[in-house]
Design a protein around this nucleic acid. Sequence first.
DNA 1: AAGAAGTCTTGACGACTGTCCAGAAGTGCC
DNA 2: GGCACTTCTGGACAGTCGTCAAGACTTCTT
Lengths: 211, 211
Amino acid sequence: MTQTAGKSRDRISRRQVDKFAERRAQLAASALQTLSELGYARTSLREIAQNSEFSHGVLHYYFRDKVELITYCVRQYKAECVTRYDQIIVTAGSAEELKQGFAAAMADTLREEATMHRLWYDLRNQSLFEESFREDVLDIDQSLERMIWRVVSHFAELVGSPPVLSPPVAYALFDGLFQQALLRYLTGRDTAADDLRKGVEHLLGQLVVDA
Amino acid sequence: MTQTAGKSRDRISRRQVDKFAERRAQLAASALQTLSELGYARTSLREIAQNSEFSHGVLHYYFRDKVELITYCVRQYKAECVTRYDQIIVTAGSAEELKQGFAAAMADTLREEATMHRLWYDLRNQSLFEESFREDVLDIDQSLERMIWRVVSHFAELVGSPPVLSPPVAYALFDGLFQQALLRYLTGRDTAADDLRKGVEHLLGQLVVDA
DNA sequence: AAGAAGTCTTGACGACTGTCCAGAAGTGCC
DNA sequence: GGCACTTCTGGACAGTCGTCAAGACTTCTT
């Protein structure tokens, strides 16, 4: 009796928690959509609510304040972002295949997720001014660094020579390449994605000795 | 008579124009100061005025609106920014000297102008959302790209081998390196500047064949 | 059926924003 | 000194912002 009651309560409670979490995720998705369109500086809670199917008051039912909402958004962004390239690493059989696959994946990301990535750079920069998101941003940045390093080190393995630089430097180089490509892509240069692909291929080849 | 009157008017007019321009520059300096401290998103005209010795109303006497003020700031930032490394290029006698001088200069810039550069990245990112500053931002970016290329190509000359990549890619790599170092520097890692120096030295060495 | 709990809307609040303007203060000329 | 012009101040404006709370609506429990 107590068990079933307990189970019942737990099930309900969990269901409610799940629904609560689901709605949080749903609202965060609307927020990410709005942020990626307007940028951090011009995004208001009312604008976010208008991009969802709810009114602006509901945001404070699911999030304590704006900082918690955006922090939640940043974390949600990370979840889908970091694992993107891991598929390529495991499926690549040769160094050449990995190189071309990775370069093509970055170019595709540029083409399909440009606005999300300009948001990422926007938020990363915000963290240099406000301390609120800093921890989460640094966490994502490290994840990206590790992801890049998995590519580089696996490529080095396939080639049979060690990488010639450290994980932070490798990440910085690819990130610089991507960011510059993003700038060009969003300002209308239609060769940006393909230039990025070539640049990434070239760079990866240079990162191991005798490649 | 007409001449002297004309001259007089011109002199006065020019003096007034100069004073007008001087005050614009002065206010822009206050604005840059404020922007570099708070970031674009949180900087208001009243805050800028409070960081100057004037009241907030005067900003609209010297600038049509906020966009014109910030555009002017961006251009003023550029003026002192772009020529920074050219001195090193001309004075460097050997490849090794250029490499070390350039790397040390970048590390010094990181240490001494960190907040200004986080503003630069902030504004560059803003230009991906708003079209207002885009033209000026792209102009600065190209200037920086040319500056980097002067270093790289001169280094290649001193070494005696051609560079192995294009100006945009070279700029993207050094920019990525600097931005990552900035992130680390502003989040308290005290090895950031020296790591940047080493990274730049290493990268520059790799950019020419047989270096 | 009725109440309890969860969910959502609506309107209000104080604070802050960019912009504008009337007038004070300063400056140089006759 | 008085006058024209530039420069600057401080307040007012309409709008937007984040936040909050009162109440309506929905969903579940008993």
